[in-house]
Design a protein around this nucleic acid. Structure first.
Lengths: 218, 218
DNA sequence: TAGATTGTTAATCGATTAACAATC
DNA sequence: TAGATTGTTAATCGATTAACAATC
């Protein structure tokens, strides 16, 4: 259908893209029609060349002096990211973090819909959290299979992560968003995204320390 | 004190380091004394050369055939990441995500302590969430200043993020962990870590699509 | 027209991967 | 000793940054 396969998008670009998306959607809501790479760059304190290259990757065409038509840019970003195609997901583990994600409104902005939540706590099963039904974990594999779910979010305790992953895989899931620190053993055809809080924290702490060090020296 | 300043650690390494840390701590708890880079690599399905280089960066010395002494490795990783030095933080915004982070036990493993939480909802102020006191946001700047807090976590709605950041900066905070999609305007000496859920999701969706594409072709 | 901005090619920078000698 | 593993240097790969012509 499209040239998605041919278009090789670097991971750092994928990470920045939703930020652009969120920003230009806001601009559109404010009644603006055009935006330049320069302007986007200034907003995020990014290098303007970086943004120019990133936007070029979407395939949107800009006009010198004017920039990009926002509505076209939004479409192209959605297209590039594949949003609206793999949008129904399940979430397993309705603890604090799971509940938070169930209530996270940002997902709707990004075309993601959590279809159902799962837990093994009988007190939770049958209830609703943020309007999402909580089902027994015994139904996980079957529901994934029947609904053709492609993405599963794991927010259970670390010790249960692998067994949940196995059930998701049995149900035909092709990608797992893993919020636990457990390294999952998965078939080659299943993708995993490791959401490491500690990793982000490590980066932040190091950034701070290097700024503090800079000051000491001067 | 140490050669922290001289040691230039690539960001990808910083992100992997806490994973190693978590794993080798587990091994230690299981009664093991040594671990090789090869073994760590196999556990995470990483390239063994990558792990070898990463571990070398910590400054820990390994012995051929045996590997590294786990207890030494743990110390070196803590040292490299600067954990235990900037460990008291505040969290602003006690919605679902904020509450989840307040209850996240992983932080303790990584030497992070959330000292207090803040919110502007009178119904929440004065209560406790996961044993953390919720204070009025009016006290934010002052408390950061008095307690010499260096890191603030922002989990408020996107529209309030900038004003919260301003208060944190006034209180002397040097790093902000921003869970909102708002691009924050900050002084040059304040570090920011953008925690973009959407960015991670974008990476996962792309990984899945490329795996699906691979199959189609064969 | 003049100037801002795009699109693209080239140069730099940094991280990953490869190769191999040293060593326990 | 033999073989696994470290430590380090070199080669490759990929992303960022720079430069500049094209164009509205």
């Amino acid at each position: 259908m499209s040239d998605d396969v041919l278009r090789k998008v670097p991971i750092p670009v994928l990470r920045r893209m939703p930020q652009y998306y969120y920003y230009v959607k806001q601009l559109l809501a404010d009644g603006e029609t055009h935006v330049s790479a320069t302007r986007v760059a200034e907003h995020f304190y990014f290098d303007s060349i970086t943004v120019r290259k990133d936007l070029a990757l979407t395939g949107a065409k800009g006009k010198p002096k004017k920039g990009f038509v926002i509505s076209e840019l939004i479409e192209k970003i959605e297209d590039l990211l594949g949003w609206g195609e793999l949008d129904q997901v399940v979430l397993v583990g309705c603890g604090d973090l799971g509940s938070a994600l169930l209530g996270y409104e940002g997902f709707a902005d990004y075309g993601l819909e959590i279809l159902a939540a799962f837990d093994n706590d009988p007190d939770k099963v049958g209830t609703k959290i943020h309007d999402k039904a909580v089902l027994s974990i015994d139904k996980l594999t079957d529901l994934c299979y029947r609904m053709q779910i492609k993405i599963g979010i794991i927010t259970v305790p670390a010790s249960a992560a692998q067994s949940v992953a196995d059930r998701l895989v049995s149900g035909g899931v092709r990608g797992i968003w893993n919020f636990t620190p457990t390294a999952l053993k998965l078939p080659k055809n299943v993708a995993v995204q490791q959401q490491s809080m500690a990793g982000s924290l490590a980066v932040l702490v190091k950034k701070i320390k290097s700024k503090l060090d800079e000051e000491e020296q001067s």
